[in-house]
């Protein structure tokens, strides 16, 4: 490649944040290589069925991103896992799974998040009882109405969602709120009601965090229009009954009484966990925040600037974020990277 490596940027991860960043770089005339470990771009967006708050079709939104990739002729190296990043003499050396090394003037980290492994909350029985599933599992099921939540071809009668699975839970070491699961839960509850109008739906929550525009309205709608029952209380355990449905034990903390319900499906709203490998701390000195996400230098003045000079952050790798958040962060990080390459930090 003829271009001076000092003027090139490596983008790690081709989720929405990585794509937005790479597009912005390209449009500004900066060369960017995008590394993506999966076989295609899109990140977690490829796994969702409908998006909050407006329940837009995720496939359509994804297509929009893919179009941008195409129009801007982005070079996405799919199937390429970045295994190590080092900084020597002001240049970043990016190593991939196949041992290939390339040098860059700046790196834009957009490697996203990992879904919480629900089996770690064994009391909910995920992986043990087939009728206990996670929110991503539900997204997948909803893609195909022939499966959906049907049980022996019958519509389910009762479905319960559990909020904060793997978030706000010191027992699993995650004290932070994952931000997107509350609204996902509302969105999915509505989707279930729409698909199976006779099905009773309840959500067990600790608090509801409706922070984004249109979120609170959707929550109101879920109660008033769709009759979804929001119960404040933590589910303590789940056990199967004779016919395979799930008996849920919880405490209604508003009414102050224990509660037992039997549901056809128990859906666990799993949160986000940091996807930053610890090795980046050792090889680069990348610092992480208390929750383990990549930390920035100054929350107010320098969001998106990691503790390493020349390494920028975008999307859920820096903490729980929605798609629009991630896109904005991608663009902002691209601009910061350009400033850095031009020596104007």
């Amino acid at each position: 490649m003829s271009v001076n490596p000092k003027k090139r940027v490596a983008v790690v991860g081709a989720g929405v944040a990585g794509i937005a960043a790479a597009v912005a770089l390209k449009r500004a005339g900066v060369d960017a290589d995008v590394y993506e470990k999966e076989s295609g771009p899109g990140g977690h967006l490829t796994r969702w069925h409908a998006l909050f708050p407006g329940r837009e079709n995720a496939a359509t939104v994804l297509q929009g991103f893919l179009n941008e990739v195409k129009e801007n002729r982005l070079d996405i190296r799919t199937g390429t896992l970045v295994t190590d990043i080092r900084k020597e003499n002001g240049l970043f050396r990016v190593t991939t799974g196949s041992g290939e090394c390339s040098e860059y003037g700046a790196v834009l980290l957009a490697n996203g998040f990992r879904l919480f492994d629900a089996a770690r909350k064994e009391e909910y029985g995920y992986g043990i009882y087939p009728r206990v599933i996670t929110s991503p599992d539900l997204e997948k099921r909803m893609e195909d109405p022939a499966t959906g939540l049907l049980i022996h071809n019958q519509a389910p009668k009762k479905v319960a969602f559990v909020h904060c699975v793997g978030s706000r839970d010191a027992k699993v070491g995650n004290r932070y709120c994952s931000k997107v699961c509350c609204i996902s839960g509302v969105k999915q509850a509505i989707a279930v009601r729409e698909q199976y109008p006779s099905c009773e739906v309840m959500n067990f929550y600790m608090d509801l965090r409706m922070f984004g525009s249109g979120f609170e309205e959707l929550y109101q709608e879920a109660q008033e229009k769709y009759g979804i029952n929001f119960i404040r209380g933590r589910v303590s355990e789940a056990a199967p009954t004779l016919d395979g449905s799930i008996q849920v034990k919880a405490e209604d903390t508003l009414l102050g009484c224990p509660l037992k319900v039997t549901v056809d499906w128990l859906i666990l709203l799993v949160g986000m966990e940091p996807g930053i490998p610890g090795s980046l701390h050792d090889s680069l000195g990348l610092e992480r925040d208390d929750a383990g996400f990549a930390g920035c230098r100054n929350k107010f003045l320098l969001p998106g600037y990691s503790s390493v000079d020349g390494l920028f952050l975008a999307g859920a790798c820096a903490g729980p974020a929605t798609i629009p958040d991630s896109v904005n962060q991608g663009r902002a990080a691209a601009l910061s990277a350009i400033h850095y390459l031009n020596g104007k930090v």
């Binding site: 064994e122 009391e123 029985g125 043990i128 009882y129 303590s236 355990e237 789940a238 056990a239």
Partner: peptide
Amino acid sequence: SHLTPGIID
């Protein structure tokens, strides 16, 4: 053990 249904199973 009710909190670790894997054991009961």
